[in-house]
Amino acid sequence: MNTPPSRAVTPQVPFTVLGGYLGAGKTTLLNRLLHDNKGRRIALLINDFGAINIDAQLIESRTDQQINLTNGCVCCGLSDGFDEAIAQLLTSPTPPEHIVVEASGVADVHSLAQYGNTPGLTLDAVVVVADALNIRQKATDKYVANTVKRQLAAADLLLLNKVDLVSTSQRSDLRQWLQTLCNGAPIIDTTFCALPEALLLGDGTRPNRSDSAKDAAHPQNHPLNHGEAYVTWHYQSSDRLTQLQIDQFLQDLPNTVLRGKGFFNTSKGLLEWHQVGKQQRLTPAEPRQELGTTLVAIGLKPQLNPVELDTLASQHL
């Protein structure tokens, strides 16, 4: 068979779709990301009609179709379509390290996420923001009920935003009701969409990046915890695992694991693990001598209990 040239040499840029109905808090979240990008070049593709307000002092230059920020981030319009905008970003002299799509309030986020599987990109996650005050009403609205329910069902991670505006009992009712609609995606309570960047976009050191072997081999040196609201779990071993062991481990993983990544060492080579909320992916990885099984998982404190994961690992791995 005539196989296409290997694309493994090109780094795969993580691709995140950020959805949710009008007013849920997407813009707040994006502003946070762009303001505090931790040195990462983020490209924001704007699929919405509401312009996002960016501090004038953060703007380096702008054209009709692109705003360049002083911190290396860019915001792009989509007037020539997604494939064109993505192609331009990937061929630019400074390609982005992460692409985030701000989906319109009525977008089919599951369908948009498929661009994340096109060449040069890797789908990171579909993150959906719901407004705790009105999500129930929107889910029965004459016009948007189906659209909103479709978005919830497509979420890998669901942010239940504005939880400060509802009572504790309302909140737990809401969470229970949402749980079925979002097919078991983890639901994270937020206020003003405050969420550690590492949870939203990952920590930016993907295991298949050329410089990451070292990081992954020494995860304990990785600067993940800064007394933040989340907790990190590490696991390392040189044992060879069977597919059954891996499947059982992943199946039993609690949904307090918001993000997971790493490699499983099997007799057929390494399998790369990528997980964000309910999205779980195992793909064959290029051989790397020094690596055995190396796993990193993160979740919120105190929901994620590393001891629980240690037990799980010792049971299955």
């Binding site: 704007i46 009709d64 915001c75 319009g77």
Partner: peptide, 9 residues
């Protein structure tokens, strides 16, 4: 009149 994006005014 406008497509989603930066100049959607």
């Amino acid at each position: 009149a406008a497509m989603p994006g930066l100049n959607a005014d």
